[in-house]
């Protein structure tokens, strides 16, 4: 029995650590609360009432595509990568859904599966190029973004197609916020992922690729899976987008590359990998939607939307970095 090394140090309780290690998550929920409050104030000023079920439903439904894309983006960012092709995958899957889905249960189920598989395949291409080909994620996904966008236009040259109303009702019921159930499912999946060997591998890769490899973690495999999952979630985003719009548009997904990064950063996911939570990114997606809502009520021209998105992205990154530095100094 080896000797005692040193005096026992007082241990902080488990929960204290949990708080300390999830500052980003707490911040985004605080931000979300603030955004909701502000929205309610604006709403009260305009309507002399509080937002109700209708507003909640439309907010949730409008957020679903982004929330999906943000979950996928989170997984890639955790490996210290970046997926710029998210917008292209949404374009393509959205177009596919609009062209193919017919108004019967069989077609809906089959095409939902096919579209998700297509997303997985597209993500797999990214993953193989980044993982096996050892290429830079940014350039790879920028190149595949271009390819996917081209393919999307090939599938649906003009905005159109149609999504059966029953499909819309199943995904994003316009009358009730049932879509929250999908989000709940995603959160459950995330919690399981976080506690799986795959989750450990992906976090380890983002911590330090070399160290992860030395620990026997299959780095290439982890990266390939991360990009594939990002493709699947982007495809889910494409489906939700088609369901919300009840039609297809091969360019309507373009903006999601930027906004998924905004959501991830707002959600406290560290862009240098290894730290963050998809739950935060979902909250980040809601903050993004709330900002649009608030802009709407404050009568700002919607043409300015990407201006505010860009601005909030920069503010979020900078504030995050400054906070991180402050916390570090205090230690």
């Amino acid at each position: 029995m080896p000797p005692e090394l040193a005096a026992r140090r007082e241990r902080r309780p488990f929960t204290a650590h949990l708080v300390g290690q999830n500052i980003g998550l707490l911040l985004v929920f605080a931000l979300l609360a603030a955004a909701v409050l502000l929205y309610c104030v604006f709403f009260w000023i305009r309507q002399q009432s509080l937002p109700g079920n209708f507003e909640l439903t439309s907010t949730v439904n409008n957020t679903m595509p982004l929330a999906m894309a943000a979950i996928g983006q989170t997984i890639v960012v955790l490996t210290r990568g970046l997926d710029l092709s998210v917008g292209g995958i949404i374009d393509l899957t959205n177009a596919l859904a609009a062209v193919q889905i017919q108004d019967n249960a069989g077609s809906m189920l089959a095409w939902t599966a096919v579209v998700l598989l297509v997303g997985a395949a597209l993500g797999l291409v990214n993953g193989l190029l980044v993982g096996v080909g050892r290429l830079q994620p940014i350039v790879v996904t920028l190149a595949t973004l271009s390819i996917f966008q081209g393919l999307a236009i090939r599938v649906l040259p003009q905005p159109g197609g149609a999504i059966p109303p029953s499909y819309t009702a199943a995904l994003v019921d316009p009358n009730n916020p049932w879509a929250l159930l999908y989000l709940g499912l995603c959160v459950l999946l995330w919690l399981a992922f976080r506690r799986s060997a795959l989750g450990v591998a992906i976090f380890a890769i983002g911590n330090d690729e070399g160290a992860a490899r030395a620990n026997g973690i299959k780095v290439v495999q982890g990266k390939v899976i991360a990009y594939t999952l990002s493709g699947v979630f982007a495809a889910a985003g494409g489906l939700f987008l088609a369901a919300t719009a009840t039609a297809g548009d091969a360019t309507s997904g373009n903006g999601f590359t930027l906004s998924s990064i905004v959501a991830v950063v707002l959600g406290g996911v560290n862009l240098f990998g290894g730290r963050g939570s998809a739950v935060g990114a979902i909250a980040g997606a809601f903050v993004t939607t709330m900002i649009v809502n608030i802009l709407f009520f404050s009568e700002i021209d919607p043409l300015y939307q990407s201006f505010y998105e860009g601005l909030f992205l920069i503010i979020a990154v900078v504030v995050g970095a400054v906070l991180g530095r402050l916390l570090r100094r205090r230690r």
């Binding site: 590359t257 930027l258 990064i261 862009l271 201006f307 860009g310 601005l311 920069i314 900078v318 970095a321």
Partner: peptide, 23 residues
């Protein structure tokens, strides 16, 4: 100076310019 990754800051700036130009 702010040590923001180039992809993020330039992507954000593209959004800002898009919004400003359109608006």
């Amino acid at each position: 100076f702010l040590e923001v990754p180039a992809v993020v800051i330039t992507l954000a700036m593209n959004g800002i310019m898009e919004g400003l130009t359109l608006g």
